[in-house]
Computed example of a mutant assay.
Amino acid sequence: MQRTIFTTPLVSTAFRAFSLTYLKLAGWTIEGKLGADARKSVLIAAPHTSNWDLPMTLMVAFSLKLHPRWMGKASIFRAPFGGLMRWLGGIPVDRSQSTNLVESSAQAIRDAEQPLQLIVPPEGTRSKTRHWKTGFYHIALSAQVPIVMAFMDYAHKRSGLGPLFEPSGDIDADMAAIKAFYKPFKGKNADQFEFDPPA
């Protein structure tokens, strides 16, 4: 598997020190710890409402000693930044093509010899939305790995890893439970996501 910033010796140590220092000075509290049973897992990244979410997520990942990969729209992987984005753990996604992204992602998790946490923002976009995409759920179900409910709460400057969620296959019930966990958290642009449809 391609080496990333999280698996590059010395570089990862330096960036972890920087991340811990920056987040502490900025007043953020980092919570949780990745258990051995989640070394291979799918991480929900929510709420996703701002471009700032990516650098913040990377710093939190360094702080927690994660080995994350994340999916982003293909356009941000074009020259001259494509190599950098891949080194940062990015996997390009071409939304204009009908590809079996779920199964290929699940297979990558199954085949990984090292720990791998695939970060997936369920909104699929930082634009205003009230519907979550279910790709993260199907990837975890197919790969037979747990879902880690990672969160970023800008209102209270809290971020980290919440509880593990084992998908049961009952997607309606499971999505309702997952979204209930995220309801208290606020993204940087809090009005960009509404959990409940208007009355």
Rank of each mutant, 00 (worst) to 15 (best):
Q2G: 05
R3C: 08
P9R: 00
F15P: 04
F18W: 15
T21M: 12
T21W: 15
L25N: 11
L25G: 14
G27L: 11
W28Q: 07
G32Y: 09
A36N: 14
A38V: 09
K40Y: 12
L43K: 01
H48K: 11
S50W: 01
W52R: 07
L54C: 04
P55Y: 04
M56A: 08
M56T: 06
L58V: 13
M59H: 09
S63D: 01
S63P: 02
K65P: 09
H67C: 07
R69T: 06
W70S: 03
K73Q: 12
F77R: 03
R78L: 14
A79N: 12
A79C: 09
F81P: 04
F81N: 06
L84P: 09
W87E: 05
G90S: 12
I91V: 15
I91R: 02
P92Y: 13
D94N: 15
R95P: 04
T99M: 13
A108L: 15
R110W: 00
A112P: 00
E113L: 11
L116E: 01
L118D: 01
P122R: 04
T125Y: 02
T125C: 08
R126W: 06
W132F: 03
K133R: 14
K133S: 08
K133E: 09
F136T: 11
Y137R: 01
L141G: 04
L141F: 11
A143V: 06
V148F: 03
M149P: 00
M149W: 05
M149F: 04
Y154K: 03
H156Y: 10
K157V: 07
L161Q: 01
G169H: 09
D174I: 09
A176T: 10
A180G: 01
F181S: 06
F185N: 02
K188D: 10
K188I: 05
D191L: 11
F195Y: 12
D196H: 03
P197F: 05
P197D: 13
A199T: 13
